[in-house]
Design a binder for these strands. Structure first.
Lengths: 121, 121
DNA sequence: CGGAATCCACAACGATACTG
DNA sequence: CAGTATCGTTGTGGATTCCG
């Protein structure tokens, strides 16, 4: 993905798509959140996030690393140790994400209520 | 939001998941954005968003409506006319989303640069 | 322990055709 | 014009297994 050669559509090639692309990833936001308090190891993140598989975490972390949001540091030790941490860029993304979580805190109940009202009729 | 003091899965059942669930939808954010300037009709959104299929738009709008973020008003006319608009709840969600787009405007170049650096080696 | 590789079920998405 | 129905393709995500 990346080239939206559609043409004259107002959102097609605006930078907002980039944020959407990053965030649309099922586990990306949760993973970033898991790193927001400091560096974490692969296994730590597995436990911390809960419900994510090794494969998905690895995949998510690789993508985030490629996006420059996360660093990966492998220590040449036995047994191997790998630590992931937010980059400066990744840290800047946490602000909007926290806005989002705050929104969820304040309005989550309303959404759930709407869902129930919709399924009740 | 998710406090780590729980010990177990800090994000598993915190309200932030809700926001993630809404936003993770491929077309949800873009569709909300399309409605941010006022009510729009189905066809208008198709053109406005660009690249979305009729089916996906209908699906996305239905889900957003069920979440209480969008209203659907069908006018009993011929030819039929249906207008979608943000609810008050939906409008409140636009603030975090705009934060996100601002982040993308400011840091999009950095992400693209990181991607290119990653694929270059 | 970190993660790559394989396999497979299933959901997402798009294109098309059709209804009201 | 708005929406449904069907189908085919592609992608996603989990479980398992093996390698460093």
């Amino acid at each position: 993905m990346g080239d939206f050669t559609g043409g004259d559509v107002f959102l097609a090639d605006c930078p907002a798509r980039l944020a959407v692309e990053i965030i649309t990833d099922k586990w990306a936001v949760v993973t970033l959140y898991g790193l927001s308090r400091g560096p974490r190891r692969h296994g730590e993140l597995i436990d911390l996030i809960g419900g994510i598989s090794k494969k998905m975490l690895t995949q998510t972390l690789r993508r985030l690393t490629e996006h420059g949001l996360v660093t990966r540091i492998a220590y040449a030790e036995v047994p191997p140790r790998v630590e992931y941490a937010l980059t400066e860029l990744g840290t800047t993304l946490m602000t909007p994400i926290e806005m989002l979580t705050k929104w969820a805190e304040q309005n989550g109940a309303a959404v759930v209520a709407a869902q129930e009202a919709a399924s009740a009729q």
